[in-house]
Amino acid sequence: MAMTLTQILKDPNSFFEEKIKSEVEFKTPLLIMIFIGVLAAISATVMTQSIMSAMPEEMAMFGIIGLVAAIAGAFIGVFITWVIYTIIFYLLSSVFGGEGDFKRTLEFVAYGFIPTIINSITSIYVISKIFSTIDMTTVDPIAINETLLADPTMQMITVVGIIINLWSANIWRYGLVHARNMTVKNATIAVMIPIGISILFNLITLLGI
């Protein structure tokens, strides 16, 4: 497993070139996504608990329900994102002449999420530190997002997130090359259309445009 992760991060082309020779398997992809889902759930827990601390005691039950919903939503959301990304890449690659099994594409797309683990862990640490300095009893919950975006450290995390996105895009393009039998050029275009839009959105949010 360690060698697999190292190879996918350093030389995704060679990794997928070998992987395409074997049968489709979802054990490793599922483990990757479960781990990312757990990290997302932890992040949601940190934020939700901070917001709950400012709630009146009579609303405690609603806070617990909100916490459970936030954790479940964050965890399940990771798997929904995986499927959505795969569908988008599959459809766009079809436009550029891609041919190949959807299951294989789903398998390979999971590996492209590995770099996000770095960003997730960093974000959990930063968010927990930021929330520990915010007096939730005096801050409007609606304005929390603005408070986070205004924090220099959080802005740095956004920049790191963009870099991580590009790292994932590099893995995804080689995943499409082999899963969908495409040229590197066409696979790059298919991947960078949605990723480019995502990066543009992050830049707009970061710059407050």
Rank of each mutant, 00 (worst) to 15 (best):
A41Q: 11
G175D: 10
T133Q: 06
F75T: 09
P141G: 06
S120E: 11
T105A: 10
I20D: 06
I76K: 04
I36E: 06
A187N: 08
I124T: 05
V160R: 00
I204D: 01
I121R: 05
I76G: 04
L176F: 01
T86P: 10
T183Y: 02
I42R: 06
I51V: 14
G196C: 02
F79S: 13
I189S: 08
A74N: 03
T205L: 14
Y125F: 13
S198G: 09
I118C: 09
T147C: 07
S50R: 00
S120Y: 11
D11C: 03
I127S: 07
L148E: 11
W172L: 06
T86Q: 07
I171T: 04
I121W: 05
I88A: 08
F79P: 00
L39G: 15
F113W: 13
G161S: 15
I142F: 13
G161H: 08
A44W: 10
P56C: 09
L203H: 05
V191H: 05
G196N: 04
T158K: 15
K21T: 04
F75S: 13
T81A: 09
T153V: 12
G66D: 10
F62G: 10
M52S: 02
L106H: 04
D11M: 05
V177Y: 06
F16C: 07
V191C: 03
A69G: 02
G66Y: 12
H178W: 11
G66K: 13
I51A: 08
I64T: 06
I84K: 02
M182Q: 03
L92G: 14
P115H: 15
V159K: 09
I20M: 07
T45Y: 15
I193F: 03
H178S: 03
L148I: 12
E57V: 07
A110I: 11
V46G: 02
